[in-house]
């Protein structure tokens, strides 16, 4: 379920799960990886086939100060979570 596609992207494939477990799972991982995320060393990529998750996850991570990017793939969605670009400028 957890893999590293590239050096700075942590990928979670949670296809088959539905909300809110998708959200809770993502929030837990975001919390665990928050230092690396906030420093911009990594990005998190969630693969989900639950449509609700494309709304709940982005809303929640935005409130936490992260940028996100949702892209529809063949039969699932990819949600990328990364450090807020304003944060980059502030640093």
């Amino acid at each position: 379920m957890k893999a590293r596609d590239a050096e700075n992207i942590v990928v979670y494939d949670i296809r088959g799960q539905i909300c809110p477990s998708c959200l809770l799972f993502t929030l837990r991982e975001v919390h665990e990886l928050r230092e690396a995320l906030k420093e911009g060393r990594i990005e998190i990529l969630i693969k989900t086939d639950n449509r609700d998750a494309t709304a709940t996850i982005p809303d929640a991570v935005a409130s936490m100060g992260y940028d996100h990017f949702v892209e529809k793939k063949e039969g699932f969605y990819e949600i990328r979570i990364m450090r807020h670009k304003q944060q980059k400028l502030a640093d």
Binding site: Q17, I18, C19, P20, S21, L23, D52, T56, D59, S63
Partner: peptide, 12 residues
């Protein structure tokens, strides 16, 4: 509060 749907009993 964080704006998402409630827990589903059959999910968890």
């Amino acid at each position: 509060v964080i704006g998402t749907i409630p827990l589903q009993p059959d999910e968890l």
